[in-house]
Amino acid sequence: TYFDPGDDDRLVVIAMGAVFTLGGVGTVGSHLWQNAKAREAHRGLDRSGVRANAEVVSRKRIWVGEVSTPADDVDLVVTGPGVTPFSARVLTEDVGRYETGTVVPVDVDPRTLLFRLAD
């Protein structure tokens, strides 16, 4: 295709092209940076994390998204060796998997209390 803007519109087309290009590059760069930070957090848990237990103290079914996808809002109490007990909340799409009273394994960084469910 060929588009030949008039003399009055040429600068607008060039400016909008630059804005969309820079916005796209910024968006892609932001996603790459966030993914790198998440991978580093997981590597940190692999290096300095300890295995602990999380007891499910409550669970509530909620609906998220525009198409109303079911999810469970789960409250946990995390305890383990070298870990100060703390409470946490997890939103999971594994509906019905975490019933009240269930104990699930987690990996926890004792310094930051960053954790992940360890299946």
Rank of each mutant, 00 (worst) to 15 (best):
T112Q: 08
K37E: 13
T69K: 14
T100L: 01
A52V: 11
V103P: 00
V77S: 09
G6P: 05
D4Y: 03
G96P: 03
V108R: 04
L113Y: 07
G65F: 07
S30D: 06
E99G: 13
T112M: 11
A41Y: 12
D94G: 06
S87M: 06
G29W: 08
W63A: 06
D119M: 03
D75W: 08
L113E: 03
L45W: 11
V13C: 13
R10D: 14
D72Q: 03
T84G: 04
G29D: 02
D72S: 04
G80L: 02
A118Q: 14
V67C: 02
T21C: 10
E93M: 10
D75P: 00
V57P: 03
A52S: 15
Q34A: 13
T84H: 09
D9R: 15
V64T: 12
N35I: 12
G17T: 14
G29Q: 06
I14E: 15
A52H: 05
R59I: 01
G49D: 09
V28M: 12
E66N: 01
K60A: 10
S87I: 02
T84D: 02
D107C: 14
D4C: 00
V25K: 09
T1D: 12
G17S: 12
V106Q: 09
S68Q: 15
V83G: 06
D75S: 11
D109V: 09
L22T: 12
A18M: 08
R97K: 15
Q34R: 09
S58N: 09
E40V: 05
E40K: 09
H42D: 15
R43T: 15
G101T: 00
D73S: 13
R10A: 15
L117G: 14
V106F: 07
T102G: 00
D119P: 15
R47Y: 04
Y98A: 00
I14R: 07
L76S: 01
V64S: 01
G65R: 07
L114Q: 13
